[in-house]
Design a binder for these strands. Structure first.
Lengths: 333, 333
DNA sequence: CTGAAAGCGCTAACAT
DNA sequence: ATGTTAGCGCTTTCAG
């Protein structure tokens, strides 16, 4: 393994010149530059980034905290993050936390011990259960919720849920159910707000029976369907807003298994617009979050922060789209 | 930011003792240990891993090369890798290559420049189009194919494809189609081998028309369905083996759109057993790859290699499972 | 534009 | 069991 000294020797220049030739070529004469490059070629020099980063007090690495990498939505956000980070010469360390606080802490240590320069958190901020914000830790939240006390890029969750519910109302549905995430989850709270607002505007009293708690997994969506199936048909919602696509897919499975036709007897709207949703049977009407864009925006924010720059805004809201497909149809009493 | 020197001063010991207290506590007296820990607490010392890794000539980081992180199967393998790595104090750098060779090379540089100690490649080895194996780069292939010229953990792809085809045969199907990945993709080759073997054993001449080329995406699966739909009904396969679940899901969508009933008129078998497959309509019969286990095994292999140990075997084959669900039914001519 | 030299924070001989 | 000390490979003043 050759080092900068070997290159200097072969090139007949000082190590300082070699160093400059690599990190600030414009400050070196063409002649020296050529000598250095030839020498690098000759001794097969590969700079030791471990040494370089150490010296520069920068890891050129960030860590991303993901509740579950196998979730397509999260994976897509991470792709966006990774794309801009790699363009800027930064590596992305994967922190699949599996919803465990201990793992979050473990990964955060990478930042405290300088192995990473900052962190992007994909779990929404949760008062009383959040390891961020933290002094001396540069962090950005991606795809989070309202009132996140550190820089954040997200969509208007309440607005999106309201849009979807409004749409169901416009189709003539009067009893509209909702499948939520865990009740304390901020996404649940924000989206429930929009859902309730919509019903209220329409003069409909929302009913406790219409709310089924899930946990953002297909399995829990299927479970939630059971809840609605148990309600007598005359009182049962005729349409449901699911707070993500996974649960919507699970719920469809549940309803079909019970002989309830989707969408004829039960309209369903999802949230996120993951890739499989358009291939679901029926194709899912859903709120499309710009997952990759969210990731990119979060990455750019974090880079600015790492470079010590100011942020133009610290609650960056991206537009969502409402995508109508086949899982939602007019009410047919 | 305090350093080891500050700790030593406060504790009244030498920096060597502090260093040892952290990395080899058993070689330090209880008394010194306590002094050190108290001092660490007092000055809020956090070791600078950048310095430590530099000094130890090790990044304690690996990089994983993934063709597409948004693919659930890959994401699950990565989870397995990450789990093992984090238990061993190693970070996992994400290298989403988006099927671009340039990106692969970019990420491989992280190993050459010592920012990572090794690499796990999730793209199958491809003669003439592979950046691995490479001298001085410690690498393991995960979920790859036969005859990979560097350490590899995988399933028996040919055997799995044969199992699935045999099953279709046993259900009475005589015309059995297959949706492949790109024709040069080693997975395509290995699995096609099993498929052909099965037909041959049954004395059936496999027909070129029965093979539709996809590229492992839902969209290409839907496309492949079009191919089969164009074949006159009397000659059309009555069952299809798809080389992954995504394409199977796309194909089902395609057949349904054309009014062909799945599974009544067309049985379909997938490959991988990603989570959504059991929620598909109909639930997918499929080859279940032990994705997370593959990741864990690959991670353990890589760790041994990084530590300079020998491998017990360099082509590690894990068992697959054949999962029968509702997308495959007996032939009903 | 170039070179000499002083470390960055830590580990690992080596000596005690 | 502990301390002294010499770097790891690189960047970055500071002179020239």
């Amino acid at each position: 393994m050759s080092n900068i000294r070997d290159v200097a020797k072969v090139a007949g220049v000082s190590i300082a010149t070699v160093s400059r030739a690599l990190s600030a070529p414009e400050t070196v004469s063409k002649k020296s530059l050529k000598k250095v490059h030839d020498a690098i070629e000759q001794v097969q020099y590969k700079p030791n980034m471990l040494a370089r980063n150490f010296r520069r007090h920068r890891a050129f690495t960030i860590v991303v905290l993901v509740p579950n990498m196998a979730n397509t939505f999260f994976a897509t956000v991470v792709r966006g993050i990774e794309d801009v980070m790699q363009q800027h010469g930064f590596g992305v360390l994967l922190g699949d936390t599996r919803d465990q606080r201990k793992r979050e802490e473990e990964y955060l240590k990478l930042v405290e011990t300088r192995q990473a320069d900052g962190v992007i958190q994909l779990r929404p901020y949760w008062e009383g259960d959040s390891i961020l914000p933290k002094d001396d830790i540069i962090a950005v939240n991606a795809a989070g919720c309202e009132d996140t006390p550190y820089p954040c890029v997200r969509i208007d969750n309440a607005g999106a849920a309201k849009t979807a519910t409004d749409y169901l109302l416009s189709l003539g549905h009067k009893r509209i159910g909702v499948i939520t995430g865990l009740s304390e989850n901020p996404h649940t709270i924000d989206r429930l707000k929009g859902y309730r607002q919509s019903l209220e505007n329409a003069g409909i009293d929302s009913c406790e029976e219409w709310v089924a708690e899930g946990e953002f997994t297909m399995w829990s969506g299927l479970n939630a369907a059971q809840h609605f199936i148990r309600i007598p048909k005359e009182e049962r919602p005729t349409a449901i807003l699911s707070m993500n696509d996974e649960m919507a897919i699970g719920a469809i499975k549940g309803f079909r298994a019970a002989g309830i036709k989707v969408p004829q007897e039960m309209s369903i709207i999802g949230f996120d617009d993951i890739e499989v949703s358009r291939y679901a049977e029926p194709a899912l009407t859903t709120i499309a979050q710009p997952a990759e864009e969210i990731g990119k925006a979060a990455a750019n924010m974090l880079l600015r922060l790492i470079e010590g720059k100011e942020l133009r805004q610290s609650d960056y809201i991206l537009p969502y789209e409402f995508v109508v497909r086949s899982s939602s149809v007019p009410f047919s009493g």
